[in-house]
């Protein structure tokens, strides 16, 4: 049975913003479970509440209602964070030499032989050449790598990454992707929020899509992409006149129909003397699904 390492249970988070202390709901009745050993993608448009959910898990803020656990302990438990790696969105680093900075973070986490651990993290992220340089003088992409190095320096069981590849060039992105897959192979869990759908699609076992503080979809990528409420019916022996919405495809006609009308269409094909070749759920791209969910009303729960 899957062991949960990160659990949100009916969490609501309200902010008070502005001089008039206006009420802003960042998360509403949010429940989600991330299991050990998976790479979990957390998607949503800007302002959906992804960063709030991550900050709650790290204990930077407390839920208004509901509760959550990280590695079996309530959110905010400091000793538990020794087993967690975290990379913030728009990370601001202390102005130090790269190796010193990573060592500092390792010491905060009580990592034994912190200097050696820091050197290993620096090497793993391809930062050896710049390890004596000041972080502020590095490019944004290099700084992001430093951020990743500090996140993995304690060999975490759970890695929480908020937009880890946003400032990276394609080569560095591939490196991060390989790092995530390598972590997965060693049994680590990765919870990653990203806008880069191709990255998510390439590495994640499961994804959740958040919109305006509510979870609209969660599941494996293939489940989600096939969950669309449309299917394609491929038929032969019919003409386009009888089926104006049909599209010719490889000598057949293909009809993209709603699930609710599937039976009706198939019967219509048969009654017209045609033959149904195949019926398949329509497979959207992740981007299509994301855009549809981001712009539409609430969809299916979980």
């Amino acid at each position: 049975m899957a062991e949960p390492v990160l659990e949100y249970r009916q969490i609501t988070k309200d902010y008070r913003v502005g001089l008039r202390r206006r009420h802003l709901r960042a998360l509403g009745d949010f429940s989600l479970t991330v299991n050990r050993g998976e790479i979990f993608g957390f998607l949503g448009p800007n302002g959906a509440g992804k960063t709030t959910a991550i900050h709650l898990a790290m204990g930077f803020m407390r839920p208004t209602t509901g509760w959550g656990q990280i590695l079996g302990k309530e959110f905010g438990d400091a000793p538990t964070r020794m087993r967690v790696g975290f990379l913030a969105e728009n990370l601001a680093l202390h102005n130090r030499r790269v190796s010193e900075l990573i060592e500092f973070y390792a010491e905060l986490n009580n990592v034994p032989n912190s200097r050696k651990a820091a050197a290993a993290a620096v090497e793993r992220l391809g930062l050896t050449e710049v390890s004596n340089r000041i972080t502020m003088k590095l490019s944004r992409g290099m700084q992001q790598r430093v951020g990743l190095a500090q996140a993995i320096v304690n060999d975490p069981e759970l890695l929480i990454l908020d937009e880890p590849t946003s400032a990276l060039d394609p080569v560095a992105r591939v490196m991060v992707r390989e790092l995530l897959l390598e972590l997965k192979r060693t049994g680590k869990t990765v919870f990653v929020s990203s806008h880069l759908l191709s990255e998510v699609e390439a590495v994640c076992d499961r994804i959740a899509i958040l919109r305006k503080g509510e979870l609209v979809r969660v599941g494996t990528i293939s489940q989600l992409l096939e969950q669309a409420d449309r299917c394609s019916v491929v038929a032969r022996g019919i003409t386009k006149e009888g089926f104006p919405m049909a599209v010719p495809q490889n000598g057949f006609l293909m009809l993209n129909v709603e699930h609710a009308r599937q039976r009706e269409i198939i019967e219509h094909i048969w009654s017209s003397g045609g033959e149904v070749v195949s019926v398949n759920p329509v497979r959207e791209s992740l981007e299509e699904m994301f855009l549809r969910l981001a712009s539409s009303g609430k969809e299916i729960g979980k």
């Binding site: 900050h55 790290m58 204990g59 930077f60 400091a78 000793p79 538990t80 964070r81 020794m82 967690v84 975290f86 913030a88 728009n90 990370l91 601001a92 680093l93 202390h94 973070y105 905060l108 986490n109 009580n110 951020g147 500090q150 304690n154």
Partner: peptide
């Protein structure tokens, strides 16, 4: 404001520390 606090408090550092 600079989010440096987050980098520190994401480690095993209590708020009182």
């Amino acid at each position: 404001r600079t989010r440096r606090m987050q980098a520190i408090l994401s480690k095993a550092v209590e708020r009182w520390h």
